[in-house]
């Protein structure tokens, strides 16, 4: 059974038809990159998958369960879907450790000691064990994003959604974040990324989904799709970003 399934998903912002019948099927362990011009609906698609945005037609299932924007549903979803944002969205009034421990203690009802152990393990994983007591503002963008990844991982999600997570970073900091993602991919984590990092999509990703005008325009094996695009739109897009 697929982990994430989208069936004919339509999304409107008022009169604006943003997603025009998206079909997508993602298996556990897959690394799927969603690429496309801005305004093509990539981020909206991602935000529909974890219930941050409503969709008007069609269906999305996650691990067999239907996705809606009902508060209770979203909270259940949070247990299996982690989300990383472009702007990190760390909680600035909490230390790195507290950021990571918050959801495990409140939502999963773990003890402080248990949550701290998890937080330390996750920080170790992203290479920031020594930053446990720092405040986010003291960290570089790349470090903040790695903390955000650790925070999501602490809830042991089945799938991680990444919304242009390197777009707000200085170029020299992009590598450290991608390295963490690559390591997660190797460990078998399911990743769905909206990204402009074509090299990453090709080398680490299994599959690329090219979105254009609210539709899945072309999709397929990442190496094949990026080296021999079929449609003019994708050819143009690849030409523009590479």
């Amino acid at each position: 059974m697929s982990l994430v399934n989208l069936h004919q998903v339509h999304k409107y912002y008022g009169d604006n038809h943003v997603l025009k019948g998206i079909d997508l099927d993602i298996q556990a362990g897959e690394v799927v990159s969603i690429i496309g011009k801005s305004g093509s609906g990539k981020s909206t698609l991602l935000r529909c998958i974890n219930g941050l945005e409503e969709y008007q037609q069609g269906g999305i299932t996650l691990d067999g369960k239907e996705v809606t924007t009902e508060d209770i549903q979203v909270r259940c979803l949070a247990l299996s879907v982690g989300m990383i944002f472009q702007n990190f969205n760390l909680f600035p009034h909490m230390t790195v450790g507290e950021n990571i421990m918050l959801a495990p203690t409140i939502v999963l009802k773990k003890s402080k000691a248990e949550a701290a152990a998890v937080a330390k393990a996750m920080l170790e994983k992203v290479g920031l064990a020594e930053k446990f007591d720092s405040y986010p503002e003291k960290l570089s963008g790349g470090q903040q994003q790695r903390v955000a990844i650790a925070r999501a991982l602490a809830m042991s999600p089945k799938v991680l959604l990444c919304d242009e997570i390197t777009s707000a970073l200085d170029p020299e900091l992009v590598g450290e974040v991608l390295k963490v993602l690559e390591q997660l991919a190797q460990e078998g984590m399911t990743l769905i990324l909206v990204t402009h990092e074509m090299n990453f999509a090709r080398d680490v990703g299994n599959r690329v989904v090219f979105m254009h005008q609210g539709k899945v325009w072309e999709e397929g094996d990442s190496k094949q799709l990026l080296s021999s695009p079929q449609t003019d739109e994708l050819k143009q897009f690849i030409g523009a970003v590479l």
Partner: peptide, 22 residues
């Protein structure tokens, strides 16, 4: 920032928990 609400929601905190802690 709206992202504070969203991040909290994505971590599974309820509305009241988000208000109180974030």
């Amino acid at each position: 920032p709206k992202g504070q609400w969203e991040a909290s929601r994505c971590l599974g905190l309820s509305f009241l928990q988000t208000l109180r802690f974030i």
